[in-house]
Simulated scan of single mutants.
Amino acid sequence: THQSDNLILKGITKDVILQVCERNNIVVEERTFTLDELINAEEVFLSSTTAEVMPIIEVDGKRVRDGLPGPVTKRLQEFFEQEIEKQCGALKDKILF
C-alpha cells in the first residue's frame, strides 16, 4: 500500500486492515509502487469504507495471477469482518431504520 500521505487519504478501514495484519502476522509494506508492480502482483485488493476488502482480479486489462481472489485477500476479508463484528456487534440479522 502507498503511505497515507502519498496520494491517498488516511482512513479508518486501512487502519483496521493494518491492525488485523499485524495481529495475524501478515507482512505489510507501505511504499509507493509502479503500475508494473501492481500488474505483476500475486494479489491485489482495494479497501474502502463501502467496499471493505475487495479483491481486484484485473488491472489495466490484464489478469492478476489466475484472475481469482487470492488466499491472503480472502483471509483479510474474514479477519476484517471478524474485527468489525467484534467492535460493532453482529448486524447480519438486524434491520436498522
Rank of each mutant, 00 (worst) to 15 (best):
V72S: 04
T32P: 10
A51E: 12
R63G: 09
K94F: 04
G89S: 02
F79D: 05
E37D: 03
M54S: 07
G61S: 06
V59M: 12
T73Y: 00
D66K: 08
F45K: 07
K94L: 08
F33S: 01
D93Q: 06
F79S: 02
E42W: 02
Q19E: 15
Q82F: 01
I8L: 10
L91R: 06
L35P: 02
D60A: 14
V16H: 07
K74N: 12
N25H: 13
E58S: 12
E78K: 14
L68H: 12
E85K: 14
T49I: 02
S47K: 08
I56E: 10
V27P: 11
E83A: 07
L35I: 04
E43H: 06
T49A: 06
R31Y: 09
T13S: 13
D93R: 01
F79H: 06
C88L: 12
T50E: 08
L18I: 11
I8C: 07
K74F: 02
L68W: 07
A41N: 03
E42I: 05
L35W: 04
E42Y: 10
V59L: 08
V59T: 02
S4H: 07
E22Y: 09
G61I: 02
K62V: 12
R65M: 09
V16G: 06
N24W: 08
T73F: 00
H2V: 09
K94V: 05
G61K: 07
E37Q: 14
C21N: 11
R65D: 15
I56M: 11
F80N: 00
I57N: 13
D60F: 10
I39G: 00
N25R: 14
K94C: 00
V64N: 08
